[in-house]
Design a protein around this nucleic acid. Sequence first.
RNA 1: GGCCACGUGGCGGAGUGGUUACGCAGCGGAUUGCAAAUCCGUGUACGGGGGUUCGAUUCCCUCCGUGGCCUCCA
Length: 454
Amino acid sequence: MTLRLFNTLTKAKDVFTPIDPANVRMYVCGPTVYDFAHIGNARPMIVFDVLFRLLRHRFGTAHVTYVRNITDVDDKINARAALEHPGLPLNEAIRAVTSLTEAQFRTDVAELGCLEPTVQPRATEHIAEMIAMIERLVAAGHAYAAEGHVLFDVPSMPDYGKLARRSLDDMLAGARVDVAPYKQDAMDFVLWKPSKPGEPAWESPWGPGRPGWHIECSAMSWKHLGETFDIHGGGIDLVFPHHENELAQSTCAFGHGVMANVWMHNGFLQVEGEKMSKSLGNFLTIRQLLDDWPGEVLRFNMLRSLYRQPIDFTVKGLEESWRVLDDWYGIAGDVAGDVPATTVVEALSDDLNTPKAIAELHGLKSDPAGLAGSLRLLGLLAEPKADWAARRPASTVDQDHVAALVAERIAARKAKDFAASDRLRDELVALGVVLMDGKDPATGELITTWELKR
RNA sequence: GGCCACGUGGCGGAGUGGUUACGCAGCGGAUUGCAAAUCCGUGUACGGGGGUUCGAUUCCCUCCGUGGCCUCCA
């Protein structure tokens, strides 16, 4: 079966053919580590983790290279470092911010069931590559130095704007680009800029300074994946200007006319029907959600929508997700198996159609091994059934009291005193206990199990 | 202002030019002393208005609504 992926460059589901099937290469824009990641950040992490797993399934675990960067040079980091660690030297303050948020990020994505990418490069460890790329761009006539800055010469690239599908005229109509005396053209963007006092600085041929906002991804993908690679992913908001500029930098530096063959973008996330924002008070970090929900519930909930569509994160939806996972754990939780059902692989191979894949999962209730293998391909069913069951909030009822009432009720039922039996059940229901009567399959003895109403 | 998405049954959410995915809830039945759980069955929806077509939810136009990008942003 063929794998088809929606490509932002062509606006179509293209058949995916790797440049080198022995080394399929994917780059995804990771977080800027200035604050704890929010649930919107989690979407590309989960979506592209599923793609990573699917590619490994198709091409072999050893034949996929997944690079997800960590941006640790950024104005917001500087601002936060100065705010939170006013007593520390700048570099130490920055390290304090980035190491803490990076560690939290790694914990978060692990709890969301994401595999570790092959490489997680940090921007600050690739300054030399960035400078090398900028020098190539200058030498090729695609960039120029001015007043300690180096700028990308946008008019030097005739098809600039092809990813975002907008013309230079359209962009200028917005008229919200920075105007600066050292710019030759209003659309030119910064590759390198001088550091202001209180900002981190690196030596460069243009004087001490720091990189612009887009060069790091061009440099890191080059270093770890080569001059061209297969897939570049990220949130849809990154299409312009970030990815457009990355593409411009890499294609102009290397002259291949292509940076990545396939560009993939996930849609935005809303919370209870509203845009997530700090001012609305509905800004949810992954960490906060993990206090109330298992990571697998968040992950599964994310996969119930097509990755390109907008998704609305709601408590109702999360509750439903938990229930569905409960069912599947009940059927397949302790079943061995890593072989996914063909129907599920086919659904995922159609541009990562996870809702279709989930529909197929519902059809696998009578095939526990296939269900287990399919769920594991999606990064679900990661723990034993008992561990999963223990994730429900701890009981607040008196276990011994409940057990005593249950025993009393069984005695009443055996005596066919149904009035007493029902009275005892009412009492238990009032405690939030749900009873499930049955018979021991071997002895025929009446037995009753119970759980808390959810 | 410019550009771009999206609008599916009570809810969530796929998909398709013509046989009404799937899940949750609901309803009916089996089961149960009665329930719960489980199993079986059950839903003709595609924002409004035009157009193309033998036929449109699916294509085109338009209107309305929602969201996104154009500035850091997943």
